[in-house]
C-alpha cells in the first residue's frame, strides 16, 4: 500500500501555499492542508469559500497558480495522472450518466480504471449498495439518496487510497446521511483517507479533524476541541421570560449590538450569546440578569465558524484590480 513511497503515519495529502485565481479573484489563497492516512477530514466553509476549487486541485482537475504539494507522495503539479488513478472524487452534482443503467455506469468506471474481474467487482458493488436486483434501472431514475450512494460506489470501485467528497450529502434525508457516514467510517477503517466538504455541523462532528476555509483562506484546523479552544470564544446560554412575557430569544437583536458580544442567536425560546472575553460577556448581559438565567456553555462549532467567517474578508464580490 505504499504507492509513491508513502509510509504510514506520514500525511497522504500534504499541500502548502495552494493558490488559485480566476480572473482577478483569488479563490484559494495560500492554503496549507495535511491529512494522515485513514483519517476523515471535514472540509468546512461558507458557500464560495474555495472548498470545491481546493478539492479539484488536490485531485488534479485544476492546476494551482501557486503553491505545491504531494498527494500520496506524488507531485501534484507534475504527476497528476498518477494521482488521478489513485484518488476517488465524488462531484457535488450527480456526475454519472443518467441515460445508462446503474450496472452500466459501474462497468464504465471499472473499465476506465482498467480493473480486473470487472463483472465480479460490479456485482459486489451492486450487492453492497443493496441494488443487486435493480442493476438494470437507469441511473437517472434513482432518487437523490440512491444517486448519492451510487456515485460513492462508482468512485470507490477502483479502491482509491484517497476519497474526495464534495458536499456529498446535500439534499439527502437524515437516514440516508447516517448510512452514508457509516460507510465513510467503514472505508476509513480500511485505510482510505477521506476529505469531505460539508455545510452540516453534525457531519463535521463525525470527522476526525476539520479544516475551516473562508473566502479562500484557511482559518482553523485541528480536531473539533482544538478548533473550539483555539477560537478563545466564550458562550452563554440564556433562558427565561422577560417582564412583558417575551422569551429570552427575542433579545437577540438587542444584545448583539452591545460591547463584548460577538454574536447572539435565538435557539427556540433560549438565546445563545458569545464573545471573546468571559467577563465582558457577563457584563453585556447584566441588564437582563434578574429575569433571565445565564449559564456558561461550551461554544458550538457553529459559533466558532460564524465568528471566524465574520472576521474574514469577503472576496466573493469582484473588486477590479
Amino acid at each position: 500500500m505504499s504507492a509513491g513511497g508513502v509510509d504510514d503515519g506520514a500525511p497522504v495529502i500534504a499541500v502548502h501555499g495552494l493558490t488559485k485565481r480566476f480572473g482577478g479573484r483569488t479563490v484559494v489563497d495560500a492554503v496549507d492542508l495535511s491529512v494522515g492516512r485513514g483519517r476523515i477530514c471535514g472540509f468546512l466553509g461558507p458557500n464560495g469559500s474555495g472548498k470545491t476549487t481546493t478539492l479539484r486541485m488536490i485531485c488534479g482537475l485544476l492546476i494551482p497558480d501557486g503553491g505545491e504539494g504531494r498527494v500520496l507522495g506524488f507531485d501534484m503539479l507534475r504527476e497528476r495522472a498518477a494521482i488521478k488513478a489513485r484518488v476517488g472524487y465524488m462531484t457535488q452534482k450527480f456526475g454519472l450518466f443518467a441515460d445508462l443503467t446503474i450496472a452500466e455506469n459501474l462497468e464504465f468506471f471499472a473499465r476506465v480504471h482498467g480493473l480486473d474481474r470487472r463483472r465480479e467487482r460490479v456485482a459486489e458493488a451492486l450487492e453492497r449498495l443493496g441494488l443487486a436486483t435493480r442493476g438494470q434501472q437507469l441511473a437517472g431514475s434513482l432518487s437523490g439518496g440512491w444517486k448519492q450512494r451510487l456515485a460513492l460506489a462508482a468512485c470507490v470501485l477502483h479502491e482509491p487510497e484517497i476519497l474526495l467528497l464534495d458536499e456529498p450529502t446535500a439534499g439527502v434525508d437524515p437516514q440516508a446521511r447516517r448510512e452514508f457516514w457509516d460507510q465513510i467510517h467503514a472505508l476509513a477503517a480500511q485505510g482510505m483517507t477521506v476529505l469531505v466538504s460539508t455545510h452540516y455541523m453534525d457531519e463535521a462532528e463525525r470527522c476526525h479533524e476539520i479544516a475551516y476555509i473562508a473566502y479562500g483562506r484557511m482559518l482553523a484546523r485541528g480536531t473539533i476541541d482544538e478548533v473550539i479552544a483555539g477560537s478563545r470564544l466564550h458562550a452563554l446560554q440564556g433562558e427565561g421570560r422577560l417582564d412583558d412575557g417575551r422569551g429570552a430569544d427575542r433579545l437577540a437583536a438587542e444584545i448583539e449590538g452591545r460591547p463584548g458580544v460577538a454574536m447572539a442567536a435565538p435557539f427556540g425560546t433560549a438565546i445563545h450569546v458569545c464573545g471573546p472575553d468571559a467577563a465582558d460577556l457577563r457584563a453585556a448581559v447584566a441588564p437582563w440578569a434578574d429575569r433571565i438565567d445565564w449559564r456558561e456553555v461550551q461554544p458550538s462549532l457553529e459559533d466558532v465558524f460564524i465568528h471566524l467567517m465574520r472576521g474574514a474578508q469577503d472576496n466573493s464580490v469582484v473588486v477590479s484590480p
Binding site: 485531485c59 488534479g60 482537475l61 495522472a81 488521478k84 488513478a85 484518488v87 472524487y89 462531484t91 452534482k93 450527480f94 456526475g95 454519472l96 450518466f97 443518467a98 468506471f109 476506465v112 480504471h113 482498467g114
Partner: peptide, 14 residues
C-alpha cells in the same frame, strides 16, 4: 452541461 465531464476528467482518462 450535465456535469459528467468533471467525473470523466477526474479518472485516468486522457
Amino acid at each position: 452541461e450535465q456535469g459528467t465531464m468533471e467525473n470523466l476528467l477526474a479518472t485516468p482518462l486522457r
